[in-house]
């Protein structure tokens, strides 16, 4: 049974579709990257999964349960968390408060999860009392991912986690993503840094014009000459 299964979805923001029949699946504990040129609908797929836009046709299953057209706040309860590309922290809240907000819907104690996140991102521990708005881009991304982990999700959706970061930070973030995955979380990730992302992913999807173009293991995609020429920058 797949963790997430996306079956031939069509949809967009207004009346015009951006997605024209996208399909994909993620197995438990997999890292899957979505890559493709600008405007291919990469982020849109992710938003569709998370209930942030209208899916006109097709269906989305999570653990074999139909979640098509559910609202984000319902989807969160099922164990999917989403890290948007931009504006993904609460700037006037402290780092600690940001993480607390991530656990807002939890009724049980979450101190263990909090420790886990601080362990995963040691720099955050020292900055726990600082406003998230005053952090560097990389640290902010850590807060955003940490916030999403507070619910202990089984699937994490990351929308361009490396956007706007310096190469050093990109490496750090990707390392953390790998570690999160090793702790048993499935990861679906949209990335511009295609090569780097594929280098630690299990599989990848290449989208273009709102539809599937290629799908294969990450290794095969990296070695595919056509893919390399067209989508990985030679």
């Amino acid at each position: 049974m797949s963790l997430l299964q996306v079956d031939d979805i069509y949809g967009g923001y207004g009346n015009a579709d951006i997605l024209h029949g996208v399909s994909m699946h993620i197995e438990p504990q997999e890292i899957v990257s979505i890559i493709g040129p600008n405007g291919a609908g990469k982020s849109t797929v992710m938003k569709a999964v998370f209930g942030l836009l209208k899916v006109r046709q097709g269906r989305i299953l999570f653990n074999n349960k139909d979640i098509t057209r559910r609202r984000p706040d319902q989807i969160v309860h099922l164990g999917i968390c989403y890290v948007p590309q931009e504006f993904n922290v609460f700037p006037s809240l402290t780092v600690h408060e940001n993480l607390e907000m991530g656990a807002f819907i939890r009724k049980d104690s979450y101190s263990e999860q909090l420790d886990h996140v601080y362990e995963l991102f040691p720099p955050l521990k020292d900055k726990r009392g600082q406003s998230a708005g005053h952090l560097s881009g990389g640290q902010r991304q850590m807060v955003a991912i940490g916030r999403a982990l507070m619910l202990n999700p089984s699937l994490l959706l990351l929308d361009e986690p490396s956007a706007g970061l310096s190469p050093l930070f990109i490496e750090q973030i990707f390392e953390r993503v790998l570690e999160i995955n090793k702790s048993g979380v499935g990861i679906l990730m949209v990335e511009q840094n295609a090569k780097q992302a594929l280098s630690f992913s299990h599989r990848g999807y290449i989208l273009s014009m709102g539809g599937n173009r290629f799908e294969d293991s990450a290794e095969n995609l990296l070695n595919n000459r056509e893919v390399a020429e067209m989508f990985l920058g030679g």
């Binding site: 969160v76 700037p91 907000m101």
Partner: peptide
């Protein structure tokens, strides 16, 4: 705290499940 979070970013609050 949730009120402050909403004031910062309503969309993110929604996505967080608040």
């Amino acid at each position: 705290k949730a009120m402050r979070a909403l004031s910062d970013n309503m969309d993110l609050a929604q996505v967080t499940g608040i």
